[in-house]
Computed example of a mutant assay.
Amino acid sequence: MTEAAMRSELAALASASLWDTERDEMVVCREVHDETHDVRTFVFASCSPRRFSYSPGQFITLTLPCGPAGEDICRSYTLSSAPTRPDRIAITVKRVVDGPVSNWLHDNLKPGMEVPIAGPTGTFTCAESSSRKFLFLSGGSGITPMMSMSRTLHDLGGMADVVFLHSARTPDDLIFARELALMEHNWPGFRTATLCEEDRPSGRWPGLRGRLTATMLPLLAPDFLEREVYVCGPAPYMAAVRDLLRDSGYDMTRHHEESFDFATLMQGELEEALAVPEPGEARYKVTFTKSRREVECGGETSVLSAARAEGMRLPASCAKGLCGTCKCKLVSGTVEMKHEGGIRQREIDQGMILICCAKPTSDLVIER
Rank of each mutant, 00 (worst) to 15 (best):
V27W: 04
F260P: 01
P236T: 11
Q58I: 08
V365W: 07
S362Q: 12
T123H: 12
A82R: 12
S102D: 04
P86R: 15
W104G: 00
A263I: 08
P145K: 15
L137D: 02
D251I: 06
S80W: 11
G249F: 11
C297E: 02
K359F: 03
L62N: 00
K338S: 13
K290F: 02
N186S: 13
A263N: 11
V32R: 13
R191Y: 03
M1E: 12
M1S: 15
M6K: 14
E22N: 11
S76P: 07
R313V: 07
D98H: 13
M238P: 01
L13Q: 12
G311D: 07
G342F: 06
G324A: 05
E257H: 10
T78M: 13
A235L: 12
R204E: 14
R211W: 11
A316I: 02
S80F: 11
P222L: 08
P236K: 10
M6Q: 14
D251K: 04
C74S: 09
S148T: 03
S291T: 03
R308K: 11
G119I: 01
A275P: 00
G321S: 05
V365A: 10
P68W: 12
S76T: 02
F260K: 04
E310Q: 14
D251M: 06
M252R: 03
S53C: 15
I175Q: 11
A90M: 01
E347R: 12
S8G: 13
L212T: 03
R308H: 03
V229I: 04
F136R: 09
H339G: 07
G299M: 11
C297F: 01
M238S: 08
P171K: 15
S138P: 07
S259C: 14
R85E: 11
L105E: 02
L180V: 06
Q350E: 15
D107F: 02
T123Y: 07
F136V: 02
S141N: 15
R344K: 05
T21E: 11
A45C: 13
D38I: 03
N103G: 04
S167Y: 05
Y54T: 00
R75S: 02
P120W: 06
R368K: 14
P206W: 13
L270E: 05
S202E: 14
T170V: 02
R151H: 08
A82L: 07
L13V: 02
L109K: 10
R51G: 06
S150G: 11
I353T: 05
E22P: 09
A282L: 05
R30Y: 01
W187C: 10
R254K: 10
V39Y: 07
V39F: 08
C323A: 10
A319K: 07
H166A: 14
D24Y: 10
R308F: 01
R211V: 00
L135Q: 09
R293M: 07
C323I: 02
E197I: 01
S202W: 08
F44G: 09
T144H: 14
M113H: 09
T194V: 04
V286I: 13
Y237H: 03
C323S: 08
G351C: 12
R246E: 14
D161H: 15
D87S: 10
T63A: 14
P56M: 12
P171V: 03
